[in-house]
Design a protein around this nucleic acid. Structure first.
Length: 509
RNA sequence: GGCGCCGUAGCCAAGUGGUAAGGCAGAGGUCUACAAAACCUCUAUUCGUCGGUUCGAUUCCGACCGGCGCCUCCA
């Protein structure tokens, strides 16, 4: 394990390159968001005080092009897509950054940096443009391994540019007609792309902050250039202590990207899969490995997640039977040991460069142990009380680990479902007063218990036709009942946290 | 052309210089009125290919084959 030494003990200052808001948010953006969200949650779990800064690029060529194409202002474009990004991030349980600075609101800071870079001799002014001169910095290329002399010579010198070296990059671009622009010592213009991240990270975190993150497609030139201009500006090193780059999301072997138009919008994915499923799918692969995303991947994630949820539901049934008491029998002790070793293995995996795949293996090891124990109880071999308090500890451990991955594991218990179950209870009372007596109660648990009690009466009389009918109607309402030797157990019917839909279950790629 | 990454069972996916986690799918069994879930057992002598280093390599080195990313905006 590479040792993680922060600038200040116990504190972690993180800057992540956020979205350029000119189009809808796709799963590639959310992979990055989820990776850094997991990193943040894990560091917080490890008791670091985390400061997470993530920029929004709202000054950029594509935004201008889009605004012109639609005949609207750039603000209209950036507002629309920033809203989309924030909305889907929230939906996926991504914690909002502590600071979310926008490039358009930090122009003075960028101008100040550029002026200093010119003073120091690292940048030059030409015809309203300002460029950073990479050959002035011997270390240029240290992050990406790219050396100025090796860059494809002259491959890309745009017309109207006045670079001294092909690898020199724009700090400031003079205004073209119809574009947003700001006054500067070099005339009207707008900042180059790279300078915003230097200006904003230094403003909010200062030189030598702990982790700089972003997609691995940003390593060169973006992050290389950030290092160059920041270290030249500050005259100290390092700009950032650690670099964390997530790999791309792939579609049929190609990077998912806006320009290739092969993306899956997160908002669309959320129509078909729960946030937990999407997060699980994105977090189940190590962050540095490119990941193909397709229907099968999401279906697999939904099933794996179902296994986790079912284990917790079974545990809930057993805990209810134990009624709060616990005798700490062998089953309890086995669960305590399993919870401890799974937690330790999970932490070790996450310490090792955020190995979420290995971490999930620990989660499922504990799931298996929980299932072994609840299976014994539900089949009548073990008394429920003997599993406590170990079962509770195991469930707590599962919740802690999955919460670090940002999984909510909530049931889709909405009012609609509760209402349907209440209606069912009411009509059953009408139809079979001999089975259903008393009041159904108010909460979902109470109402389900009411129905199941009546159904057990039918089963006791070996009236399986009635029992089957009730079970079927409960399933239609969204409650799945399983009969076990020691009595019924139930859970909300879907295992991925949302009600199954014809679309989600019927369509296959 | 330069820089870098990847290739592990039917699929997805960790991993280690000493003999392959986990998820999905599959087979058999247990439980069971039925259904469902769970549990138990099994499923890669083998980690793209060929060489090399080593007592020993999937793990290190080299070559090759195949795939990908960046070098232009991009998470």
């Amino acid at each position: 394990m590479e040792e993680f030494l922060t600038r200040e003990p116990g504190k972690a200052a993180i800057y992540v390159c956020g979205p350029t808001v000119y189009d809808v948010t796709h799963l590639g953006h959310m992979r990055a968001a989820v990776v850094f969200d997991v990193l943040r949650r894990y560091l917080e779990f490890r008791r670091y005080q985390v400061t997470h800064v993530q920029n929004v690029t709202d000054v950029e060529d594509k935004i201008i092009a889009r605004a012109q194409a639609e005949g609207v202002s750039t603000d209209a474009i950036t507002g629309r897509y920033l809203d989309d990004y924030q909305r889907v991030s929230r939906a996926l349980n991504v914690l909002p950054p502590h600071v979310e600075p926008r490039a358009s609101q930090h122009i003075p800071e960028m101008i100040e940096m550029i002026e200093r870079l010119i003073e120091r001799g690292y940048a030059y002014h030409a015809e309203g443009d300002v460029y950073f001169e990479v050959t002035k910095l011997p270390e240029y290329g240290k992050l990406s391994g790219q050396l100025p002399g090796e860059l494809r010579a002259g491959a890309r010198v745009e017309p109207g540019e006045f670079k001294r070296h092909p690898a020199d990059f724009a700090l400031w671009k003079r205004a073209k007609p119809g574009e947003p622009s700001w006054d500067s010592p070099w005339g009207k213009g707008r900042p180059g792309w790279h300078i915003e991240c230097s200006a904003m990270s230094l403003k909010y975190l200062g030189m030598g902050f702990d982790i700089h993150g972003g997609g691995d497609d940003l390593i060169f030139p973006h992050h290389e250039n950030e290092i160059a201009q920041s270290e030249a500006y500050a005259a100290t090193r390092p700009f950032a202590r650690y670099w964390v780059h997530n790999a791309m999301v792939m579609v049929h072997g190609e990077k998912m990207s806006k320009s290739l138009r092969n993306y899956i919008a997160v908002a669309d994915a959320l129509q078909r899969y729960s946030a937990d499923v999407i997060r699980y799918a994105l977090a189940a692969v190590h962050y540095r490995k490119p990941m193909e995303v397709d229907e099968a991947r999401l279906e697999d994630a939904a099933k794996a997640l179902g296994r986790l949820r079912i284990a917790l539901a079974s545990a809930g049934t057993v805990q209810a039977r134990a009624g709060g008491g616990g005798t700490g029998g062998p089953a309890s002790r086995a669960l305590q040991r399993a919870a401890e070793s799974a937690s330790a293995a999970f932490t070790a995996a996450m310490d090792e460069d955020l190995n979420t795949s290995a971490g999930l293996a620990s989660v499922f090891d504990l799931v298996a142990e929980v299932n072994r124990v609840t299976d014994q109880v539900l089949k009548g071999g073990t008394d429920a009380a003997e599993t406590m308090p170990g079962l509770q500890e195991a469930c707590d451990a599962l919740r802690v680990m999955t919460a670090i991955l940002g999984l909510r594991l909530e049931d889709a218990v909405d009012e609609e479902l509760a209402g349907r179950v209440r209606d069912l209870a009411a009509s059953l009372r009408q139809e079979a007063a001999q089975l259903f007596s008393g009041e159904p109660g108010r909460t979902l648990d109470e109402v389900v218990a009411f129905i199941l009690a009546g159904r057990e009466k039918a089963r006791g009389k070996r009236d399986f036709a009635t029992a089957d009918r009730i079970r079927k109607r409960m399933a239609e309402a969204g409650i799945l009942v399983e009969d076990l030797p020691t009595g019924p157990k139930w859970r909300v019917a879907s295992t991925d946290g949302r009600r199954p839909t014809a679309d989600a279950s019927g369509h296959r790629a």
